Simulated scan of single mutants.
Amino acid sequence: MKRLSVLLFLLISSAALAQQNAETNRWSATEANAWYAKEPFLVGANYAPANAINELEMFQADSFDPKTIDKELSMAESIGMNTMRVFLHDLLWQDPAGFTKRLDQFLSICAKHKIRPMLVLFDSCWDPFPKLGKQHEPTPGIHNSGWVQSPGADALTDVSQYPRLEAYVKGVVGAFKNDQRILAWDLWNEPDNTNDNNYGQNYLKTELPKDRKVAIITSLLPMVFQWTRTAGATQPLTSGVWIYRTPDDWQNSAKWTPMEKVQLENSDIITFHQYSNPEALEKVIPALQTFGRPVICTEYMARGVNSKFQTHLPIAKKAKVGMINWGFVAGKTQTFLPWDSWQKPYVNGREPAVWFHEVFKQDGTPVDPAEVAAIKQSTGK
């Protein structure tokens, strides 16, 4: 308990200065809107190749697969997608030269297919104990059974590892700070997600205690914004809000959590997640646009909760809100299975009547041709 108190004290003290510095160097709304005015209607997916169970397997030397990535991004280009949201990992920076080379190769494949990705530096979702090396095979019947957090619980709770995290952020951002192949940097995916129903309090209980994890990251995130800006990123920075709130809540800062305050007050562009019906999307977009900055939805499309291409893309296009759905080609992440597959695994060949995520099956055929038609219509393809 004493060690935790010291850790939090050090974090809070550092974060206060980092918050001040990060806000000082934040893009103005005018700069952000000028950048966005040059962008097309952004449509894409959260992307990992079908043969990668997580972000480590996607980018490690032994499993990096440019051929599969090229094939799949060709499919994305064919339906008019022009962006992808792609997760990196701090452990990959243990091989800075190799990782930089592979990321550069990935960006070249993206550019070949007219796709500019948003790169995610950190992620609070799923397994809190990532390890380099060969990743385990998918657990049958379970959604995202092998995705890993970055940084993991060990690094989050060990302040001596923070220089390593800083070196990763400054290293990877610094290497690509002027690279126009990159759309934006998403600094931390769902930073206050405590994974209650999988690794957290309601299931495996291997996750850090909720309050402890959220307190640490609330103090660490301003530092990550500062590191990224110090590295000289010329692309916009963001960290997306994801917990459901009413439109009135977003317009009342007194109702924001401390984490949401950090995210919204440091982001150059506003990003959010929306796994809900079209009526909710129509209400939240104007609320988020009151911040006077570009707005992009970086996760949506879960058929089981009525979040769909056909309904959501026309709403977003009218408002020029970029849309990045979860999942592209079904594969080792198994995110065509619903979230509650952790409690009710789809075993013995059983599949959900309606696939949860993904645009294409692993054989390259659409999950639903009508969805691909809707994507093509929205992108003008």
Rank of each mutant, 00 (worst) to 15 (best):
L8H: 14
T234H: 06
T206R: 12
W126M: 13
V224H: 13
A254P: 00
R26T: 08
F129L: 15
K213G: 06
T365H: 04
K177N: 05
R3N: 13
M323N: 11
H357A: 08
L208R: 01
A16E: 13
S239H: 06
D340H: 13
Y244Q: 14
D363V: 07
S108K: 05
K255V: 11
K376H: 01
W35L: 02
Q105Y: 08
D70W: 02
I217Q: 11
D340M: 10
G304H: 04
T311V: 10
G232P: 13
K317Y: 01
P151H: 14
Q377F: 01
W35M: 10
H113Q: 05
D123H: 06
Q377I: 08
R245L: 15
I69W: 08
K114S: 12
Q161R: 07
A167L: 08
V367C: 05
K134N: 09
A370K: 13
K170T: 12
M1S: 15
K376P: 10
T206F: 10
T238L: 07
V43P: 04
N189D: 05
F99Y: 06
P96Q: 09
I182Q: 11
I270R: 02
A18Y: 08
R164N: 09
Y162C: 00
Q310K: 12
P66R: 04
L56E: 05
V241A: 05
G174S: 05
K210P: 01
G200Q: 00
V159E: 08
W126D: 13
A37R: 11
N325V: 09
L42K: 05
F129G: 11
P130Y: 07
F225Y: 14
A254K: 10
W339F: 12
E39R: 12
Y199F: 14
Q289K: 10
Q310M: 09
K213Q: 05
P49T: 01
I115R: 00
I315F: 03
H357P: 04
S108H: 13
N277H: 04
M301T: 11
P366M: 09
Q226C: 05
G240K: 00
T290I: 00
T238M: 11
A48F: 03
P369Y: 12
Y162G: 01
N277R: 02
W339H: 15
N82V: 03
P222A: 10
G200R: 01
A37Y: 05
A353H: 13
P49F: 00
Y275M: 10
G80Y: 03
G304E: 14
F41W: 00
P314A: 04
P130W: 00
E23D: 02
T290G: 03
M323V: 11
P258L: 05
A16N: 14
L119Q: 07
D179Q: 15
F99E: 08
V367E: 03
N277M: 01
V367G: 09
R212N: 13
I375Q: 07
G331T: 07
W326R: 13
F272M: 03
S13N: 15
Q20S: 15
Q263Y: 04
W339P: 03
T83I: 09
Q362G: 15
I315N: 00
G331Y: 06
P294I: 00
A231S: 10
M84I: 02
Q377L: 12
A45L: 06
M223C: 15
Q377R: 13
K205F: 08
A61V: 14
A233Q: 03
V284F: 01
P163Q: 03
D248M: 08
E77P: 09
P49H: 00
L103G: 08
